[in-house]
Design a binder for these strands. Structure first.
Length: 813
RNA sequence: GCCGAAGUGGCGAAAUUGGCAGACGCACUUGACUCAAAAUCAAGCGGUAGCAAUACCGUGCCGGUUCGAGUCCGGCCUUCGGCACCA
């Protein structure tokens, strides 16, 4: 039977009946945890990107399985989230109903992929069995001081009617709906990820992750080393601290700037200036955070009338407020050194403030102001002549001795805002009691179930707030009337620990068993989109570390090795989208060619990490290749048993060489997700088999062995097809219980090697030399070649370089 | 603006530590089979010149190091990611 989608179904059924991909819980010594980022159950069908991610990672997992690993390869769904709720607002279909329906559809489609998923370990984040433990983790974080509430200005999307994390705001617009984001003050729950900033940074170098991703995380965390320096407010007991990375420029301070929101502003502002300050503060409050973040905007500010005392010189400098100083970074105050900072320079020029040089460039360096690079100190009393680097240490030391400063490290990373004014998410397990205050829901009362009967009106208030039977409850402490938190958790919270739940997904006493999880984790190979480089991956790392410190597990990092798949574009080279009409619907292709052809095309047509444009010609070519293999197999199966020779001449040697070369390369390339070259080598083996098959008096044993290896090599990429071919060749079920072939190094040694002969670095001709020829013999062979004199002419040989097994370069003059 | 990655035939892409550029495939051309077409099988296929042997050019651009550079160094250009008043 020619390969088609029917073959897919046949073997899917058989695999399911025989439970062939079931994970063996007893053999944890050789476990290998292979994981793709789980998906959101959207209403649409699986797209090419899902196949690219899941299908090819599955091929990788299959090889590992055949190499004897006990592969744990689970699947699940990131099932809470905005789209389902927005869909409900639009259509009236309840998020729970639509989500569960979508999950059923997607499960079905994922089964049709023919992957090695063990569905016994499925995890669905919107089910109480799961979110009960999300809530439990929230409570542990709360108990350990890692979850706290504060009033904070938040990014508000007027269209989604919800709060967005900074990272969900793209160009001042909502990541999801692209409407303009505004600012709003709300009391929100935060996770103290900043506590782990340094560790999150320190563990990065040892991870087998793409360098680019590590770089993104490094930037995101944004460590900055410097000093905190105290300035006293002249004529009062008040003081404030500034953070600076340029303590060497301290003598160049001519004024200081506070963020307009800084708490000290009201206290120090003089009567003369109060009106101007108040007006300025009002004006700043009106400017959206987005506009304020624009670098092209002209800097503005006002004088507070107050003066600060320079900690070393005792000089009085003006205190200003300006919007270019951010309340949320560092201490919310800066010392202004206009001579050596571009922003301060611009500001000082505008408001005619003094600009005082304290750094000069080295000999020959253009140090026109503002000079922002390191140099040598000048006008800085006893520090004159020191380099910037020496001066930073010396000045901070000096400050420390007078108790006016010390070395300090700050981070750009901010705490993670997790409250969402939304329905379709994990309820926050907190109760507010007038008498007892903020009370965590007792663990034995979890889960706090999400009520089904709610009204979806997009008015910015959580639907839960309007659900009386949910919101009104009794205080667990005093038994009096109390209210539940009406917000739900960011869905990134759900996805920050799902990989911990998979191995123990049915545990109803705890989120996961500590002993088991210590054996099953970390994840050995994690594969998913690069768009999660900053958020998801950082949050999951934070959760892992926090859970470790709370005694729930004993490892430091969740994902040892990470791969990002590229993006498959439409045939026009543009991102696939319905509006462009360039989407590729896997179902149609699978119906026509079978899922293995689809998967193999994805494997062969692209560099996995880069992705690229879809090509109908490309998948047709793959269809032809599969048919070509099938012809080879059926022809051979017909001839099987006919007597052949047992000779092992040059033809056999060549076939055996290609065979083992294919085994070696396919194994090594697949290991590092280079599926395209792995398949190229398999194609070469098939070509070699055709060539050999056309000969008279073949060595049938060798041919069968080579063909058998070829099918084994194809099997991870075309599992249904390979299973069918295996059967056609008369072997027992299942090919996936076979061992992965190992190449024979001896077969890769050729008797004669072709080497290129270069004259002055240019290839002129090629010679064949015996495999074991030494440099001298190679040189002699090259020079003895009849073509050599013509190229050398009358010139003399200056030097001869022999690169073993590759080329010989004759340098002549 | 800063940080990072990438630019290779008509196309998708390969290329160990600096060592034969273009593996494998698509498209195309030719031949075999066929009444014919498709499919299949076989062969060719970077550019220019030439009947040919061959010569010259060729990995975004300019320069450098080297016996030898797609690969290393310096300077540009373009594209794509990340960050962006971070003190």
């Amino acid at each position: 039977m020619a390969y088609s989608v029917d073959i897919d179904r046949k073997w899917q059924k058989k695999w399911e009946e025989t439970r062939i991909y079931r994970f063996d819980k007893k053999n944890l010594e050789k476990k290998l945890y292979c994981l793709e980022m789980f998906s959101y159950p959207s209403g649409a069908k699986l797209h090419a990107g899902h196949w690219y991610n899941f299908g090819l990672t599955d091929s990788w997992a299959r090889i590992k399985r055949m190499q004897g690993y006990n592969v744990f390869h689970p699947q699940g769904f990131d099932a809470f989230g905005l789209p389902a709720e927005n869909y409900a607002i639009k259509t009236g279909i309840h998020p729970k109903d639509s989500t569960l329906k979508n999950i059923a559809t997607m499960e079905e489609q994922l089964r049709q992929m023919g992957a090695t998923f063990d569905w016994d370990y499925e995890v669905v984040t919107c089910l109480p069995e799961y979110y009960r433990w999300t809530q439990w983790i929230f409570l542990q974080l709360y108990k350990h001081g890692l979850a706290y509430r504060k009033n904070a200005p938040v990014n508000w999307c007027p269209s989604c009617k919800t709060v967005l994390a900074n990272e969900q705001v793209v160009d001042g617009c909502c990541e999801r709906c692209s409407s303009e984001v505004t600012r709003k003050n709300l009391t929100q729950w935060f996770f103290r990820i900043t506590k782990y900033a340094q560790e999150l940074l320190d563990c990065l170098p040892d991870l087998d992750w793409p360098e680019k991703t590590k770089k993104i995380q490094t930037n995101w965390i944004g460590r900055s080393e410097g000093a905190e320096i105290e300035f006293k407010v002249a004529g009062s007991d008040l003081s404030f601290r500034v953070f600076t990375t340029r303590a060497d420029t301290l003598y160049g301070v001519t004024y200081v700037v506070l963020a307009p929101e800084h708490e000290l502003v009201d206290k120090i502002t003089t009567e003369d200036c109060r009106q101007a300050v108040e007006e300025y503060k009002k004006a700043v409050a009106k400017v959206s955070e987005i506009d304020r973040m624009s670098t092209v905007r002209e800097k503005t500010g006002v004088f507070t009338g107050a003066y600060a005392v320079h900690p070393l010189t005792g000089e009085k400098v003006q205190i200003w407020i300006a919007d270019y100083v951010l309340a949320g970074y560092g201490t919310g105050c800066v010392m202004a050194v206009p001579a050596h900072d571009e922003r301060d320079y611009e500001f000082a020029q505008k408001y005619s403030l003094e600009i005082r040089r304290v750094i000069k460039g080295a000999e020959g360096v253009d140090d026109a102001l503002p000079f922002v690079e390191d140099g040598f100190l000048t006008g800085s009393m006893e520090f004159d002549g020191l380099s910037s680097e020496e001066a930073r240490a010396a000045i901070v030391k000096n400050l420390e001795s007078v108790n006016a400063g010390e070395p300090k490290v700050t981070y750009r990373l901010r705490d993670w805002l997790v409250s969402r004014q939304r329905y379709w998410g994990t309820p926050i397990p907190i109760i507010y009691c007038d008498k007892c205050g903020t009370v965590p829901v007792p663990e034995d009362q979890l889960p706090v179930e999400l009520p089904y009967n709610v009204v979806f009106t997009p008015d910015g208030e959580s639907p839960l707030a309007k659900c009386e039977e949910f919101i009104n409850t009794t205080c667990p402490d005093c038994g009096g009337p109390a209210k539940r938190d009406s917000d739900t958790l960011d869905t990134f919270v759900c996805s920050s620990w799902y990989f911990l739940r998979y191995p123990d997904n049915k545990n109803d006493r705890e989120p996961f068993n500590r002993e088991l999880i210590n054996k099953m984790l970390p994840v050995d190979k994690y594969v998913g989109g690069a768009e999660h480089a900053a958020m998801h991956l950082l949050y999951a790392r934070f959760f892992t570390k926090a859970l470790r410190d709370m005694g729930c597990l004993d490892f430091d990092e969740p994902f040892l090795s990470l791969v990002h798949q590229g993006v498959i574009l439409g045939a026009d080279g543009q991102k696939m989208s319905k509006s462009r009409g360039n989407t590729v619907s896997p179902d149609e292709y699978i119906e026509r060619y079978g899922s293995d052809v689809f998967r193999m095309y994805l494997a062969f047509g692209f560099n996995y990490v880069e992705g690229g444009p879809w090509s109908d010609e490309g998948i047709k070519a793959m269809d032809r290749f599969v048919a070509r293999v099938e012809r080879l197999v059926t022809n051979f199966a017909r001839e099987k048993g006919t007597p052949g020779s047992d000779r092992f001449g040059p033809d056999e040697k060549e076939l055996n060489y290609v065979r083992h070369y294919a085994i070696k390369c396919a194994t090594e390339d697949t290991e590092v997700f280079q599926f395209n070259t792995a398949i190229a080598r398999i194609m070469e083996l098939i070509n070699a088999l055709y060539k050999y098959g056309a000969l008279e008096n073949r060595n049938m044993k060798l041919m069968e062995d080579a063909l058998k290896d070829a099918i084994l090599l194809i099997s991870p990429f075309a599992p249904h097809f390979a299973e069918e071919m295996w059967q056609t060749l008369g072997y027992d079920y299942s090919i996936f219980n076979q061992s992965w072939p190992i190449h024979d190094e001896k077969a890769l040694v050729r008797d004669e090697i072709e080497m290129a002969v270069q004259i002055n670095g240019q290839v002129k001709f090629r010679i064949n030399v015996p495999r074991d020829a030494d440099d001298k013999q190679v040189e002699e062979a090259a020079l003895a070649d009849e073509r050599a004199p013509g190229y050398i002419g009358g010139r003399s040989i200056v030097k001869v370089i022999v690169v073993k097994g590759r080329l010989i370069n004759i340098v002549v003059k």
